[in-house]
Design a protein around this nucleic acid. Structure first.
Length: 277
DNA sequence: AACGATCCCTGTTGGC
DNA sequence: TGCCAACAGGGATCGT
């Protein structure tokens, strides 16, 4: 599943291809991929053709491509989206295709269509989902005090608040579980119940989990979900300590990894290392 | 405002 | 073996 590390890797692959390049031709072949531009593919196409991309940025799990006017292309990989650069074979579920002035081409493949590609003007971007998320967990992580401020009084489970992208952005189900395990925090603990020591450990854990995942090419759960932009699988799966390991012994203390459902997402944790308080 | 429930979507998996 | 329900989850939206 694409989370911050996978989106960061995607950004690094796209940046040298898109940076400075002009969109010569653009096709959007699935209305759902254009749903944040009124579900109208022609809006995405007309706003991109002839424009030059200035670079590739990322906030949380959103990719941003500022254009040479005041518009910004925003892309989200959702559950199953990935970009393919200079595709050699035709694949199904390709919903976006762009040929660039530099001779390169970029495709967006997304079987489950949870991802999207949009082009926003400055006013639209202010009301988009991108504007509502918190500081990026990798580039611009909050400090302990800032995180404490945003969690104060919150009674929702810390796991749910991490998934909300509000207090901090970029973590999804895998890396939220991994971070809480490394920090020794019960995923069901109310966000407001965490003290400064907890939050310090959590921020350190998040940094370590993300760094490890980026270094290892991200997490490919199977060969159909997330893949590196060159088509290879990421190698972080075997390094996961709790995600998907329910019923197996904890690699740190030997207790059996448990699973609970929080906000309709499975949460994996070690009852020994992440004791309730 | 905060929080939880529901929905979208398709490839894969598990049970019968 | 074959069929089909259940499952996976990021974010938007809606009800409380």
């Amino acid at each position: 599943m694409p989370e911050l590390p996978e989106v960061e890797i995607t950004k690094r692959h796209l940046a040298p291809v898109l940076g400075g390049a002009m969109f010569e031709t653009v096709e959007v072949t699935h209305p759902r991929t254009a749903r944040h531009n009124q579900g109208d593919p022609s809006i995405v196409v007309s706003r991109l053709v002839g424009r030059r991309a200035l670079g590739v940025g990322r906030k949380g799990k959103f990719l941003t491509v500022p254009l040479d006017n005041d518009m910004t292309m925003v892309a989200h990989l959702g559950m199953s989206g990935r970009f393919v650069v200079d595709p050699e074979v035709e694949v199904i579920h390709t919903h976006f295709r762009a040929h660039l002035g530099n001779g390169r081409s970029v495709e967006f493949v997304d079987p489950r269509t949870f991802g999207f590609i949009a082009v926003f003007d400055p006013e639209e971007i202010e009301t988009s989902g991108l504007a509502r998320i918190g500081a990026d967990a990798w580039e611009n992580p909050p400090g302990v005090d800032t995180l404490a401020d945003s969690l104060r009084g919150r009674v929702a489970p810390i796991k749910a608040l991490l998934l909300d992208q509000g207090p901090i952005s970029g973590l999804g189900n895998i890396y939220a579980d991994e971070s809480l395990f490394l920090a020794g925090i019960d995923p069901l603990a109310p966000g407001g119940s965490l003290d400064a020591g907890d939050l310090e450990r959590l921020l350190v854990a998040i940094r370590q989990v993300l760094a490890t995942a980026i270094d290892n090419g991200g997490t490919s759960l199977d060969d159909l979900a997330y893949l590196l932009p060159d088509g290879r699988a990421g190698e972080n799966l075997n390094l996961l300590l709790v995600y998907g390991r329910d019923g197996e012994p904890c690699r740190r203390c030997g207790e059996i990894i448990d699973r609970v459902v929080i906000r309709a997402r499975s949460s994996h944790f070690c009852p020994g290392c992440q004791a309730k308080r």
